[in-house]
């Protein structure tokens, strides 16, 4: 463990709740940016919004996975120390999986998809990303008529991967895109219905 870890929440009750509510709204309104800026200190080893999300949702009952670009530094120590959560041995074991879309390969099928009896036993992906002005047309629960998913960078085969994820519904993964401006949700129920 590194000598000095960044601090966690100063006000865990209020900060956890505020973070969760933003995440809940994001997942309930796919594609819509839910503005959020965590009040965490900025020296966290993850961008503050992603760090806040980890602190808000992780504890000793669940595990997290870090993609290669995030596994070298003190992210794992930070999450373990402040939440008591364990690192998952494989992507399949992870409740939450953190990755940076600018640096890591995205393969949705690598993560836990849930089971037919318990589709909730799946991985939620926390994807560091930036918001794009233009995006793909999306439809499904939480979206009035047609919405937009504007995220960068996304892999070239994202629409193919997401179509496969959607085809497995109710199994599949959910994604929370985390940007400096807030959260954008993409639950497994969402369909991509048009290109950029």
């Amino acid at each position: 463990m590194t000598a000095v870890l960044a601090r966690g929440f100063d006000q865990p009750v209020a900060q956890s709740q505020a973070t969760f509510r933003a995440v809940m709204q994001a997942l309930a309104n796919p594609g819509r940016l839910i503005a959020f800026r965590s009040t965490l200190d900025t020296d966290t080893p993850l961008p503050v919004n992603a760090a806040a999300l980890g602190l808000a949702l992780l504890d000793f009952e669940v595990t997290f996975h870090l993609a290669p670009s995030l596994s070298a530094g003190s992210v794992a120590d930070y999450l373990r120390f402040h939440t008591g959560a364990r690192a998952a041995k494989t992507t399949q074991d992870a409740a939450l999986a953190f990755l940076d879309l600018a640096k890591d390969t995205l393969c949705l099928a690598d993560y836990a998809q849930g089971t037919p009896d318990y589709p909730d036993r799946s991985t939620t992906l926390i994807a560091l990303s930036t918001r794009a002005e233009t995006g793909m047309a999306i439809a499904g629960p939480g979206i009035k008529a047609v919405g937009t998913l504007g995220i960068a960078p996304l892999p070239a085969d994202f629409t193919v991967q997401w179509a496969a994820n959607r085809a497995g519904f109710p199994l599949g993964v959910d994604i929370l895109f985390v940007t400096e401006e807030g959260f954008i949700g993409l639950p497994r129920s969402t369909r991509i219905v048009g290109g950029v």
Partner: peptide, 20 residues
Amino acid sequence: EQTKRMIRRAILKAIAIPGY
């Protein structure tokens, strides 16, 4: 807070899988 987190995680899954 531990109970709230557990319920919050359940709520996120419930939203992602409507009606389940």
